[in-house]
Amino acid sequence: MSAVPAPAADAPKSAHTAADYKSDYKPIWCPGCGDYSVLSSFTKAFAILDLAPERIAVVSGIGCSSRIPAYTSCYGFHGVHGRSLAAATGLKLARPDLTVVVASGDGDGYSIGGNHFLHACRRNADLTYVVMDNHVYGMTKGQPSPTTEPDWDSKLSPGGTGLRSFNPLVIALAAGANFVARAFAGDPNGTAEIIAEAIRTPGFSFVEVMSPCVTFRPEQREWKHHVRPSPVPATDDAAKAARRLMTDDGFNIGVLYKGDRPPYQPPMGKGRKTPADLERGFAI
């Protein structure tokens, strides 16, 4: 199993810094976008875990958040709208030795990607799914996403959609995710710690990052005044986690649930070589 072990108390300092995971490409996001700091949290989390960049694959779909793979020096895959989890699942099952991190947004991940989200939680492959949630389709310039409030006014939904917003944490928990957390882009170090813990935890880890869209949802600048560390530590009791979500106002930051369900690994015939075995022969 390739889950990244927790460092021992006397472990030496990481040989990597966050800069080791940054590519030469300058990110193209609006000034003030929360995704800049999520990118920073990715690279900090990788440094905390001391993973070589070539042991990591960052997979995404389509949307502002999905630009992230090219901004890292890891393996990257920019997929099709909503399909990041399907691509990541295929990759992880073929290459269980890689740490696979999936980057998505609320538009990409919860509408066209919604079905994949349910089944990825249920399947519990060893993936870390980071969704940058800003309650809006940003790349198509401001339409309501599944997490948008019912009364948010937009060109496509004058007066609001009137639809209940999707609760990703509830869905993840109900569908069987092994790790469920909420983070805030305004705290890149805290988010990095949560992403690192999500990667360390075997199975499907879901991290919802509140990542403000200052262009189409400028009121989200206020999030920084509302977020707070979760008053209670993570639980391994799904029923307890569910009860907490019933009273959750959406601003508690931290790990909500951490289970111990064994990750999905398809049975492999005896003597079958993995792609990694085959690759060994070509190592220089």
Binding site: S111, K141, L156
Partner: peptide, 25 residues
């Protein structure tokens, strides 16, 4: 997107009697 946003504006303003619904895909 501009096509459906334009229609949404007209529906909202009462210039069109249509119903517009945003679906999930």
């Amino acid at each position: 997107t501009e096509i459906v946003e334009t229609l949404a504006r007209w529906c909202d303003a009462g210039e069109m009697a249509a119903r517009l619904t945003m679906l999930e895909s």
